[in-house]
Each structure stands twice: as structure tokens, then as C-alpha cells.
Design a protein around this nucleic acid. Structure first.
Lengths: 199, 199
DNA sequence: CGCTTCGCTAAGCGCTTGCTTAGCTTCACG
DNA sequence: CGTGAAGCTAAGCAAGCGCTTAGCGAAGCG
């Protein structure tokens, strides 16, 4: 269950001690959940005393917010970077492949992103919700374009958008490295999503 | 976010006070998660003092286990009752429709079932894991039969089994009544799952 | 050198947690 | 009517929680 978060992902977090706290928090939140994780646990994963956490972050919730915000931005970036195909079919396959692979590759971060929203303060939740809407819109646009040019047959557009997203998101819940590599999973899911909507 | 659990579902729990505690716990666990829920919260939802909880259940974890065990059994029952079709296509559609509708209809219970596994004791988790394997096997069998008679084209059988299950399970994460009625959602998902695998 | 800033620790504060204890009331039953 | 079980509450205990305070040593700088 425990997976050490790739530290390279958090290179932008400075100084190094703040980054160690943050990656420790990602692992702990992903393993046990936000509420079951103590500040003492996070600090000891970073090799520090509990009080050191408050030198770098004002609260445990703020640590969660930094993780959640960065995670949401990274997920949206992955989608936008992948939306380069010429046809709706290519675009959908590429989006689903990238989004799924990201949830597998970064399943610890993804778990925090997808399952700890309820622990965010209302203000922080609102900020993150904006990014979530953008993620959803990215998928919906491709489906809309595919319906318009006849390559997709979709009767319930919002429902199908949600289903496609949902398929990838749930990867964060069950994925462990022994289930296969993220790239292969991404290709399988691209295929499944394409078949779900093809005309 | 708060939804009162249909008390009829828990008719087998006696006496009534134990049932009130249990349904209160389902709502609280679904809303906030197991760790963030206090015994005082559960007791007050049942209109009792905190100590009254321990007259009926030996611990907070045991309350979770009762919910999780019953929820898993109910989910497996739903699948088995739905597996009545003559062809793999009929059977798959019926399974996915019923399983999805159950996760929507009973999304509070389903949330506890799917997202609070980590809070169970190792022994209780093992008991519940047996039922989870049976649920997975039920889907896998239908896909296997459909591949054998040529009605399904599936290259990665375990991966596709997991994807079909995953699609329905994730309904528990996002479903609220304003998203439409469970029966309609079940039909949409039966269609999506069928298209995912059809030859 | 003297002084400040930075990153950290030891200690602990006020509070909440899961759960226990002691005792009250209600009611079935001989 | 007397007795005991069942179901509950008021009070509280030990432990652990998020977070604060006071202060220490190293590094940077005039």
C-alpha cells in the first residue's frame, strides 16, 4: 500500500524540507486518508519533529490543499497536452490514454486528489472545483465534436462524459504497480472508451 | 450530501435502537468518512447518549464492519439475482444495469462499502474481501462465456473485468439524486458496458 | 565581532477522542 | 410484590490530537 512519491514531481517546492514534508503527507494521505493521518506521522516521515511542520505550512489542511491544487493542475495539464489529435477519435483516445496513465503512474497523488475533497475548507474546495470543471469540459468538448461530425453516437452527453471520466478516475482507487504498467493500461482504456462512444 | 438511509433496508437489525444507530452511522460514514465520524455524532443521530452505542455494538469499528458486510452481501445478491439472461449479452447488460442502479440507489451504503475498507480490522477486511472476489468472478464469468461463444471481443480479460466493475463502482463516488434516477443510469451503463466488449 | 534570521526541537497546552463506570428507570415474570 | 434483566444516561478517564511557545545552534552580514 505504501508507495514513495517520486520526488522529481515536486521539484518546484522549496526548500527541500518543505518538499520532504509534502511528499510524506502525500504518501500518508493516500495510505490512510487525511483524517487518519497525524501531523506527527507526516513530520516523522520527513525526519523532523512535529513542530517543524508549522515552520513551512500553517496547518495540516493547507498541506492537503497544496497537494490537491497541484494534483488537479497536473491532471488538467496532462489532458490539455494530450488534446493534439486531428480527429475526435484520435483526440478522445489520446485524452483517455493520458488521463488513465496519469492516474496509474501517480496513483498516490491521484488518490488524494480524488478522495480527499471533503477534507478541504470550503474556500479551497471551491478553487479546486474550478479545475475539476475544466477537466470535465475538456472531455465533453471532444465528445461534442465527435457527435457533430458523426464519428460518435452518444445519446446522453453529460452522462457519457461522466462515465468516460469516471472510468479513468477510478483507476486511482485500485491501481498498484503489480497490475501492469500505466502505459499499457492507458492504451486499454483508450480502446474501451472509444468503443463506448463509436458510431 | 446528507441522505437519510432507507430504514426498510435494515429491517433485519434488531432492536430498533440498534438499527437507528446503524443507519445514523451509515449516513455519517458516507458524509464524512469513518475516521472523521465520532461516536458522539452517531449516537446523537440516533437520539441517544454516546454510551448507548456500546450497549449495542462493542466498538465503532464493529459498526463499520456490520455495514460493510451487509453492504457487500447485498451487492453480491443483486448481481446473482440479475444473472438470469439466456445469452452473454443479455446477462452482461442485466448485471451492469442492476449493479449500477444499486450503487446509485444505495449510494450512501455503497460509499461506505467502497471507500472505507482501509478502516476495517485485518480480520474483518479479509471476510469482506472474499465477497469482493465473488463479485468480480460473477462479471468475469459472463465475459468469459461471451468470448467463448463469439459475442464479445476482449483481449485483456482481467483488465476489462476490472473496468466494467470499476465503471459501476465509481457511481457511488459522484451520484446524487439530482443526477437522474438509478434505473435510467443503469440502462445507460448497461449500454456502455456492452459496447465496450461487443465483437 | 555582534546581531539577526532561519530552521529546527523539547515541552506542553487545551481539547476531543473512543470507550468505561456507576447507577437510574422500566418492565416481564414467578 | 420482589427480583433481575434490558436499555439507557451522566460523568469521566487515559490517550492522542492539532497546534503553540520558548529557546537553541548555525549561517549570513555589516
Amino acid at each position: 500500500m505504501s508507495a514513495v512519491t517520486d520526488p522529481l514531481v515536486w521539484e518546484h517546492v522549496q526548500p527541500a524540507a518543505a518538499r520532504r514534508l509534502l511528499t510524506g503527507a502525500v504518501d500518508a494521505f493516500a495510505e490512510r486518508g487525511f483524517q487518519a493521518t497525524t501531523t506527527r506521522d507526516i513530520a516523522s516521515r520527513a525526519g523532523m519533529s512535529p513542530a517543524a511542520l508549522y515552520v513551512h505550512y500553517p496547518s495540516k489542511e493547507r498541506l492537503l490543499f497544496e497537494i490537491s491544487l497541484y494534483g488537479h493542475k497536473a491532471a488538467l495539464d496532462v489532458l490539455r497536452s494530450a488534446d493534439t489529435g486531428q480527429t475526435p477519435v484520435d483526440r478522445l483516445r489520446s485524452l483517455v490514454e493520458a488521463f488513465t496513465a496519469w492516474h496509474a503512474e501517480h496513483h498516490t497523488i491521484a488518490r488524494v486528489v480524488q478522495y480527499e475533497l471533503a477534507a478541504l475548507s470550503p474556500e479551497h474546495l471551491a478553487e479546486v472545483a474550478t479545475i475539476r470543471r475544466a477537466i470535465s469540459a475538456q472531455i465533453e468538448q471532444v465528445l461534442t465534436d465527435g457527435v457533430a461530425d458523426g464519428s460518435f453516437a452518444v445519446t446522453d452527453l453529460p452522462g457519457t462524459t461522466l462515465a468516460v471520466l469516471s472510468l479513468s478516475i477510478d483507476v486511482a482507487r485500485w491501481y498498484t504497480p503489480h497490475r501492469g504498467d500505466p502505459a499499457t493500461l492507458g492504451k486499454l482504456y483508450a480502446d474501451l472508451a472509444h468503443r463506448m462512444v463509436q458510431a
